[in-house]
Amino acid sequence: MRDFVANDPDVDELTQAKAYITGSFPLRFDTNGKLIANLIAAAYYNRPDDWFDTYNQKINALTAADIKRAWQKHIRPEQMNVVVVGGEKAGEF
């Protein structure tokens, strides 16, 4: 995490992440329930009227520097905890 916060994200990983986010975007609306939930969320967070029309453009416009800046602003690796889940015996997973 420290390395990711300190450095720019890998260009290939960023490209793949953008493709996943924009490619899966229509699945947010594949049922009436999801459609309503997204409309309610947009209203709740006071999104602009063109939010859904411009979402993919905004995702694709993000740069590695934008991602790095956001991570450095919001992610504090030194304040994170590690949780390990496994068996009762040491080394049992």
Rank of each mutant, 00 (worst) to 15 (best):
Q57A: 12
A64C: 05
H74P: 00
N60R: 15
I75C: 04
A42T: 03
Q79P: 00
E78S: 02
G33N: 11
T54H: 10
E78D: 03
Q57Y: 08
L27N: 09
K89L: 02
D66W: 04
R2V: 06
V85C: 01
L27Y: 08
G87Y: 02
D53T: 12
V84S: 05
A41R: 15
K68V: 04
R69H: 07
K18N: 10
Y20E: 14
Y55W: 15
V83T: 04
V84G: 02
A90I: 03
K73N: 06
S24E: 15
P9R: 13
N46G: 02
D30H: 10
N81R: 13
I40K: 14
N7D: 13
Y55P: 01
F4A: 13
L35N: 07
Y20C: 10
Q72Y: 06
P48A: 11
D66S: 11
N32A: 11
A43W: 09
T63M: 06
F29V: 06
D66I: 09
V11F: 06
G23N: 14
F52M: 07
V84A: 11
A61P: 00
R69W: 01
E78H: 02
H74W: 12
T15C: 02
E92N: 02
D30P: 00
N60E: 15
I59Y: 04
K73R: 15
T63N: 08
V5H: 07
D8A: 15
A19N: 15
N60S: 10
V84T: 12
Y45R: 13
T54I: 13
Q57P: 00
P77D: 04
F29P: 00
A41T: 13
K34A: 09
L27M: 10
T31H: 09
M1A: 12
W51H: 12
N60Q: 15
Q57G: 10
A41H: 11
A90T: 02
A19D: 15
I67W: 01
Q72N: 09
I67C: 03
E92G: 01
A90N: 05
A43D: 10
F29G: 02
V85W: 00
I21V: 14
Y44P: 00
P26W: 15
W51M: 06
I36D: 03
A41G: 04
G33R: 12
R47W: 05
A65T: 12
V85N: 01
W71V: 03
F52H: 05
F29K: 06
A43M: 09
D66N: 15
F25R: 12
Y55N: 06
W51T: 03
A41W: 13
T54G: 03
F29I: 04
Q16P: 00
W71A: 11
L27T: 09
L14M: 15
K18Y: 09
E88H: 04
K73H: 08
Y44D: 10
S24A: 14
F93V: 05
Q72E: 11
I21L: 13
T63R: 09
M80D: 04
P48Y: 06
N46R: 12
G86A: 06
V84D: 01
V83H: 02
N7H: 14
V85G: 01
N7R: 15
D49K: 14
G23M: 12
N38C: 03
P9C: 14
N56V: 09
I21D: 01
H74F: 07
G87Q: 03
G33V: 05
L39D: 01
Y55K: 10
K89S: 03
G91C: 05
K34M: 07
P26E: 14
Q72S: 09
T15D: 13
D66L: 08
V85M: 02
D49P: 00
A37E: 10
N81D: 10
P77N: 05
